[in-house]
Amino acid sequence: MTTTDSVRNLTLKIKRYDPERDEKPHWEEYEVEVDGHDRVLDVIQKVKWYQDETLGLRRSCAHGVCGSDAMRINGINGLACKVLVKNLQSSLLTVEPILGLPVIKDLIVDMKPFFDHYKSVMPFLINDDPPPTTERLQSPAERARFDDSTKCILCACCTTACPPFWGDQKYVGPAAIVNAHRFIFDSRDRGAAERLDILNDAQGVWRCRTVFNCTSACPRDIKVTQAIQEVKRAMLTGDIGFDPST
């Protein structure tokens, strides 16, 4: 276990914007005392609580499972509660809102366009067969087929790290495709054809340029690009590994 409690000073640079006071975003700097255990979230909240209460950010669980605090940290998307200060290379820490979504205030962006894309892929189990009195059966191998994409917490780190999404926000984006993948490859689901049809569009999977930014940004280590490629392949081959009509 790391026992370094070494306290040091760090400069936190935050991109600030308050629509009620500012014409445009600007940078502000704060000096913060940090120790080896501090998360980036802790550093930001030290500023909010003890220096400037007007700072705006979202946060809740503080350990990487709720997906509230996605932001650009030293230029790279991540959850502020999952990045430890001691793992940052420099003594300067910059944070700014994720890109491609309208900024509401400081680090807070409007998530509605992101959730609209998510909802557009029918992210729910489709199966109108009457269910059995107990559980539907699914083998461990069938369950493993879509395990990776069940981990998504909808934080938007992937989508807002994606250059094609920066260029055109009508693109559904990696997170929506991951959530389509989660159902397309679920042996209990019967809606693959409809979802593949939705994604077989100029604003669907074909916008992906396999930049892999999404995969490196994912705080849940989902192989996002691979999931997108699997959806593309299913579209081309018509093969999802099982017959949804049975």
Binding site: F124, L125, N127, P131, T134, E135, R136, L137, Q138, S139, P140, E142, R143, F146, D147, T150, F183, D186, R188, D189
Partner: peptide
């Protein structure tokens, strides 16, 4: 039935 992806036993339960 809603789709919750529980882990499975060898016999699929």
């Amino acid at each position: 039935h809603m789709g919750l992806p529980f882990d499975r036993t060898a016999d699929g339960r």
